[in-house]
Design a protein around this nucleic acid. Sequence first.
RNA 1: CGGGGUGUGGCCCAGUUGGUAGGGCGCUACGUUCGGGACGUAGAGGUCGUCGGUUCGAGUCCGACCACCCCGACCA
Length: 565
Amino acid sequence: MRVSKLFGKTVREEPGGTELESHRLMLKAGMIHQSASGIYSYLPLAWRSLRKIEQIIREEIDAVGGQEVRLSVLQPRELWERSGRDAEFGPGLFRLRDRRDRELVMAPTHEELLTTIVNANVNSYRDLPLIIYQIQTKFRDEQRPRGGLLRVREFDMKDAYSFDTDEESLDNSYQAMVQAYKNIYARCGLPAIMVEADSGAIGGKDSQEFILLADPGEDTVVMCPSCGYAANLEKAVFKKSTTELEAAKDLEEVHTPGVKTIADLAGFLDVPTGKTLKAVFYMADGEVVVVAIRGDLEVNEIKLTNALGARELRLATPEEVRDAGLVAGSASPVGLEGIKTVADDSINLGSNFVVGANRKEYHLRNANHPRDFQPDVITDIALAQEGDTCLKCDASLETRRGIEVGHVFKLGTRYSEVLGAYFPSADGEQHPIIMGCYGIGVGRLLAAAIEQHHDEKGMVFASPIAPYQVSLIGMNVEQQAVSETAEKLYKELTSKGVEVLYDDREESAGVKFNDADLLGLPLRLVVSPRNLKQNAVEIKGRTDSQAEMVPLESTAARVKELLSG
RNA sequence: CGGGGUGUGGCCCAGUUGGUAGGGCGCUACGUUCGGGACGUAGAGGUCGUCGGUUCGAGUCCGACCACCCCGACCA
């Protein structure tokens, strides 16, 4: 490709309104164009990279037995009502009506449709297992798109689905996909790590994410530097300390004027925060819930949502708290009736707690479970924090930010049961198909790759996903010797299968060097009057500080050699 | 949806107490330059986000709306 003909121009001015380097660099390089919030078009350079990423994905999923399909984006809304996800996605689902006023959705993912198609094509356990996948545009009306391609409303996703007869078979499919994912990231030059994850709205049991550690990422990962434990903060577990367990003393009411927070309380009564229980109020699907947790811990709202089986969870407003008859600042499960209570299991890792008295400006000393209160649910709902103790090896946990570049789930039978995808086993019994699902956002992967590999001059593409392999710069192309040599080299390299971006513009050296650095192709070749005097071409890797001079006649061979090494 | 911010040629921005819009980049032409974003000269290009109001007169003041960006709840 000739730069003079390339659709999509680099710009000298810094693009405005960008926070992320990947966003800034792609705009500056003329790779993408935004038309609305979270909606981007890909220009040739970006599209070439994306197609390469897609091809890598395709090859790796094919290698573990995946079969590629193309499912419809437009789907009857009724299908989504049947699975319950019409309500679950809520406003996140793009809905529309056709000319006959029938309701359709633009698919945000494809569990529903594929499950029904599988049902029509799987007649026996002999037809299983299956891994079916596609690479296709998804539509999600995200509450807040952000960060260029990091989070958008229209995006290309590789979504794969496995269909198995039993748990063991599912494990095999799952592990095969995990391996395929690891290969994909490795080939894209990305050190993605696998972490335990919450399964979120997709549903299901086991779930793991592939995360690229990066400060602008939207996810927080909890990691153990000693044993390698890694989990999304939403899911992370840790060892909770145990405060001294004493014999239960009698409840005792104390006057605590002006005490509102746990810090106030601990200070006022001179006890450690771990010796208190705090109450937090939530609205779970319209119902007030009181949550009790030891004062030195914080609530993990994802864990709480799961513990409640709730669809929507948020903090209760002061009005809702008051209307429920609760006393903010002095609330506790002790003596509460008629209100659902959930407690963190830390209530059993201590004794004689200070708790709210459910009476303004009063607290109680020496509250103990289960003598004084009996929550409806007791489980782990605590938020892991930097410095907490690893459950597995007692080391100190660290937290890091990261970009989620892939997610795998064991779905189980959630969709097959609801949508009626059953198979007869060898003994003739009908069983729901056991499913898994596996996603990679292609555009996000590109953005993450740029976040991961760039410098002050621009992007640094790993060869397998670079839009072209070589920047060929013709310096002073108005000189015939230069243009003839560069043209010849361009044609020679191209004929040998090397992807060359030939800068044939009549621009100054600085412009061409800066554009080449910005695009960050693996190799840069310079044909110039100076180099021609030595009958040589200059070759430099994007991150090399020194260039090498190569005789003109062996340039193509040297380029092939460098690219294959 | 709550909080904060911004809308002015293709891009980045300036625009005084209201007086009818300007710079840089880019673009076109010519000339001079020619290994790290060269220079000169001459040009083209704008419903100032939209609608309404105040005023002799609005980019500027008032109101409503819209769009986009950023911070929180969702996800590849």
